[in-house]
């Protein structure tokens, strides 16, 4: 069970994130997981100096474009790049765009975290 979980859509994402920013919450991270034909993205926030964490979850299609929250929380830039590399989640307007080469090298396997990919380490053959 995830506590304080709220379902949102990609259209309301930026408004909701802005509310956290106004309330001086700390951005914790996002978790992306592959549901088969869709991607589930969960954003976690933490009210500093409180101890409870809040979460927002949205489910998007694999080729859908979602807005970047790095304009509000710069810290999100690394994790957004990571989601793009590992799951192919298209994030629009990232403050720093590594172009899919943040963690992965040019000859690394592509979209390694997607479920139907062969999982092997040796170049993803």
């Amino acid at each position: 069970m995830i506590e304080n979980l709220k379902e949102i859509t990609k259209d309301t994402l930026l408004q909701e994130v802005q509310k956290f920013a106004d309330a001086k919450a700390r951005f914790v991270t996002t978790v992306c997981s592959d549901l088969g034909d869709k991607l589930e993205v969960t954003y976690y926030f933490n009210y500093s100096p409180g101890v409870d964490m809040s979460a927002m979850r949205m489910v998007v299609d694999k080729n859908e474009e979602v807005p970047s929250i790095s304009g509000i929380y710069l810290a999100a830039v690394l994790v957004e790049n990571e989601m793009f590399e590992q799951y192919g989640l298209k994030v629009k307007g990232m403050a720093i765009d590594f172009g899919g080469l943040m963690l992965l090298a040019k000859d690394s396997p592509v979209l390694p975290m997607v479920k139907d990919k062969a999982a092997g380490g040796k170049g993803g053959e």
Binding site: S108, P112, G120, G121, G124
Partner: peptide
Amino acid sequence: TGGVFHNCYNILG
């Protein structure tokens, strides 16, 4: 040899 990371996708060995 690659050790504990042998089945990680980004590892050559």
